[in-house]
Design a protein around this nucleic acid. Structure first.
Length: 467
RNA sequence: GGCGGCAUCGCCAAGCGGCAAGGCAAGGGAUUGCAAAUCCCUCAUCCCCGGUUCAAAUCCGGGUGCCGCCUCCA
């Protein structure tokens, strides 16, 4: 099994994935906090997870993908309080929206998407083992992790621990910490939490932010994860603290390969709710583009590089994708006998694509191979020199690429409405008698109804007008 | 201030020492009644300054600029 090389944040190197028990690959990804609609930046990251999972599967890996859903934290509680509804109502609603967005984007659903609130006992048990190993202390009913007890702390983010200025940004509920870098494992109940609280040996309260990932990843995938993914902003403190919790509790390496995704920027600065510059998938639909266009756009830049969200970029992506899909459909027209240069071109394109993907998901090079294959096929088709067997080979390459990129499916043929067919026929009659004024008028008419007609040697072809 | 990343054609972007992929846009041509679609052709010495080398976008040193992280954050 030849697995792709990916940048490992632990070493800052591109390294081959090395699962503990191949062909199984345990993939844990940080999912959404369901307090609002996920934005495009979040979706880009989730698409990167999907690309990794699909690429691994295409290489024969048995991927077990687990994505957590954070349904209890400061933000979800704030939202519930603000709206005056139960926490569960807020999280259920946004979780449903999130799943709808994933489906629209053809994301393969993770095998398990555990909600934090369904694993409180696992979290409590984890805190207990950390207590037993002397990594914790209690203050004002909350339980904290004492970083000083873990020598390797900071190995992921490589931030100088001395650089953390004690007291500089300590928020009110972290107030009792001994050291600024310590973090909360269990938050004592406060009146603001209302009825959201669980009983634990160390007091009534709720879990700290990082706890769920350590507890749930262990529950589903074991003590050591093959791959753990998340946005770059999670490197510190989230993933650093997960390492502390997990390794503090088990004494074993928590993650073999940490992979982080880059931001989506809006006019050079990152998209984030706190900056108030977020866009959702609806912004793509408003432009008249399909979710798959967004998918192509988001996947066309390497996962760890930043990408700028713009209408221009999205439209460019949509056009590039449309050409690929159009060719794939056109491949059906090939009727030539025997085999020609198309077969080897298809094989070459496919191996170029796979090699590019293996190289830290070099999607630019992979897509270039696909576009060059497209041009070659169009050329052969135009000359009527494409053999059926060649077209089949090319189709196989596109099907393979679609299995990974997930945005090259040829849409199901939409039945042409009777009135549209009638107009097309009428127009063709006009053309036959060289009444081009009438012909053009009818074409405009069709366009107004959202249909485009193209004249070909084989007669007029109608299709849904795209942008 | 500390740490990290990036700077290649109008826009996006590959490239990891040997004469600069690909996509979008643009111009010219073929084809077309006109279009559309498609094909062909054209369009860059790689932020700046030094250095190493027969050879550098690619390595080294020094600048400049942009972005991110430094306990809300994909």
């Amino acid at each position: 099994m030849n697995l792709p090389r990916l940048t490992n944040t632990l070493t800052r190197q591109v390294e081959p994935l090395a699962p503990l028990a191949p062909p199984k690959v345990g993939l844990y990804t940080c999912g959404p906090t369901v307090y609002a609609r996920v934005h495009i930046g979040n979706l880009r990251t989730f698409l990167a997870y999907d690309l990794v999972a699909r690429t691994l599967r295409a290489r024969g890996a048995d991927v077990v993908h687990v994505m957590n859903v954070t349904d209890v934290d400061d933000r979800t509680l704030d939202e519930a309080r603000r709206r005056g509804v139960p926490l569960r109502e807020v999280t259920d609603r946004h979780l449903a929206e999130f799943l709808a967005d994933l489906d629209a984007l053809r994301v393969v659903r993770p095998a398990v998407m555990p909600r934090a609130t369904e694993h409180i006992p696992d979290m409590v048990a984890l805190v207990r083992s950390l207590e037993a190993r002397g990594h914790t202390y209690e203050a004002d009913g909350s339980v904290y992790f004492r970083i000083a007890t873990l020598p390797g702390y900071g190995k992921l983010s490589r931030l100088p621990t001395s650089g953390l200025k004690a007291g500089a940004r300590v928020s009110h509920d972290h107030y009792s910490k001994e050291e600024a870098r310590d973090f909360v494992l269990w938050k004592a109940w406060t009146p603001d939490d209302g009825d959201v609280a669980w009983d634990a040996p160390f007091g009534r309260g709720r879990p700290g932010w990082h706890l769920e990932c350590s507890a749930m990843s262990r529950h589903y995938l074991g003590e050591t994860l093959d791959v753990h993914m998340g946005g770059v902003d999670l490197v510190f403190p989230h993933h650093e603290n997960e390492i502390a919790q997990s390794e503090g509790a088990t004494g074993k390496p928590f993650v073999r390969h940490f992979v982080h995704t880059g931001f989506v920027n809006l006019e050079a600065v990152k998209m984030s709710k706190s900056l108030g510059n977020v866009r959702t998938l609806d912004a793509v639909r408003t432009l008249g583009l399909a979710p798959e266009d967004f998918r192509y756009w988001a996947l066309s830049v390497r996962y760890r590089d930043p990408i700028v969200f713009s209408e221009e970029g999205l439209v460019a992506a949509a056009r590039a994708r449309a050409d690929l899909v159009a060719l794939r459909k056109r491949l059906r027209e090939a009727t030539g006998e025997g085999t020609g240069p198309g077969t080897s071109a298809a094989a070459a394109a496919r191996s170029r694509l796979d090699e590019a993907l293996d190289d830290d998901l070099n999607v630019s090079a992979a897509l270039a191979a696909l576009h060059e294959l497209k041009t070659e096929m169009n050329r052969l088709l135009g000359r009527g020199e494409l053999a059926r067997a060649d077209a089949d080979a090319a189709e196989a390459a596109f099907a393979h690429a679609d299995g990974i990129f997930g945005c090259f499916a040829v849409p199901g043929e939409e039945a042409t409405p009777a009135d549209v067919s009638a107009l097309v026929l009428e127009r063709e009659t006009a053309r036959k008698r060289r009444d081009f004024a009438a012909s053009d008028r009818i074409r405009k008419d069709l366009a107004a109804r959202g249909w485009a007609v193209e004249d070909t040697p084989a007669g007029p072809k109608v299709r849904r007008a795209g942008r």
